[in-house]
Design a protein around this nucleic acid. Structure first.
Lengths: 254, 254
DNA sequence: TCAATCCGTATGTCCGGACAATGTGACTTC
DNA sequence: GAAGTCACATTGTCCGGACATACGGATTGA
């Protein structure tokens, strides 16, 4: 029986531009990722050893390793000592990131719309103060929004933001998502702690989402942090489970 | 007005053991993490420049950088070019990992218990085959369990596993969690894709969880992958929202 | 035929140095 | 006094090498 020589070492054309301001390791990582995405590097195929790869590209081994490591961190490659580096044979391509409901909907082709119900400054309650790490009763932004898709209510969003971070104009909030506004204001979102649960809708909640009282609702609370660890947003959301569910990817920390 | 000299550079006692098999960068990273956890390194405090730190420890700068980088990846430190490296001033300490319900409960001091309802081999349905990446109608493990805490039903867990990965004995399944069994079998869990939603309980589901028909249920579907990208588990779970909610941390990929 | 051993290979760790890019603060200039 | 300029500090990128460690297959032996 002929052995189906699986996992062959792939020879592909790589090159780097030393005059570019883009770091060399990043150029290499991008090309490798593109090759994986494009299918040139098939799952299970070996990448060829680092030393040889480095000399072929005119790079040093640390630089090549840095490129490979970044893809390993992304979950695209696996290193095996004594074996080599190979492409993960995963069905899942891109791990989901910290997502914005607005972006998710837009990407899915559902024409999202936002109706701003409240947009004002209020004193922080104990709960909000604890979440945002600000003094109790200090002023914070309070935003209440109804998110619609195809004209149908999909979620009720209540958010709190620390003062001074951002100008929040109702018109902008109706035109795009909160995260996009924050990024545009130069805030680098880094991580978020979320709690997802479910409960029966109260009459008021049911009314807002055009559900019936007692209908199941999906609830989410989230505190978002920027790259310095500051809390930049606290939100309490309720979703209609028939219209929305959370989908994401968790990674195990090595 | 006296300037409150914030963000001082901290001098702390670090040392590495060169005879240890533990990598030097890892030793340093552990000590730094412990100092942050312990409060010796307070949020906002500067770490001191890498060169000086390296010479003080008798290490090279790349080694020190590797240690620091691992903590930056964990979200404990922030690097700023021209400024230095400082401790993130975050309330959140440990980002949650891919979690096991059993471990979560045990950690919370709720005496978890498991009742195995089904444990057999079955042909894979189209849905299961797609999730696990195995041929349709090929044999897979099917496990149905009821998870209890303090004797009260908390969740109904239905899982499918590809064949040959693991011996699944009912006694073991009742004594511990599935993830722990998989790890013990040498499987390195890497990532999981989850979908969380909510719906009203059907009469059969209500019966299993001692809820009433129509009560809100939290639902979760998950495919777990090992470090080579193989799907190693597919599960469909339903939780009583009064007893359980999902809490986790999402990271933005740089 | 099967098991233990050896060895090549590839990644893992570590070093010491070099120059570039950037943010901060002090200085100078208007 | 305010704005622009410059030097300094610190991280970012990159190099070329060295040895350790672990995996797999081939060789050897029972």
């Amino acid at each position: 029986m002929p052995k189906p020589d699986a996992d062959p070492t792939v020879q592909l054309e790589l090159s780097v531009d030393r005059s570019s301001p883009v770091p060399l390791y990043f150029q290499l990582a991008q090309q490798l990722e593109a090759a994986i995405e494009h299918g040139t590097l098939t799952p299970g195929s070996l990448l060829g050893n680092e030393i040889e790869l480095a000399s072929r590209l005119g790079l040093s081994r640390p630089t090549v390793r840095q490129a490979i490591q970044s893809l390993v961190d992304k979950g695209l490659l696996v290193r095996r000592r004594g074996v080599g580096t190979q492409v993960v044979h995963s069905q899942v391509k891109r791990p989901l990131e910290l997502s914005s409901l607005y972006d998710d909907l837009e990407l899915a082709g559902q024409r999202p719309a936002t109706k701003v119900l409240v947009n004002k400054m209020v004193p922080a309650s104990a709960e909000v103060a604890a979440a945002l790490g600000v003094p109790e009763d200090s002023e914070v932004h309070r935003i209440e929004r109804l998110r619609l898709a195809h004209g149908e209510p999909m979620a009720y969003l209540c958010n709190f933001l620390p003062p001074g971070l951002l100008d929040l104009e109702t018109a902008q909030l109706e035109a795009t998502g909160l995260y996009r506004l924050m990024r545009a204001a130069g805030i680098t979102l880094h991580s978020a702690r979320q709690t997802i649960g479910a409960r029966a809708a109260t009459p008021a909640e049911a009314e807002r989402l055009t559900e019936e009282a007692g209908a199941p609702l999906l609830t989410m609370q989230r505190v978002t942090y920027d790259d310095t660890g500051r809390a930049v947003e606290y939100g309490t959301h309720t979703y209609r489970p028939s219209r929305y569910s959370f989908e994401f990817q968790l990674l195990v920390r090595g």
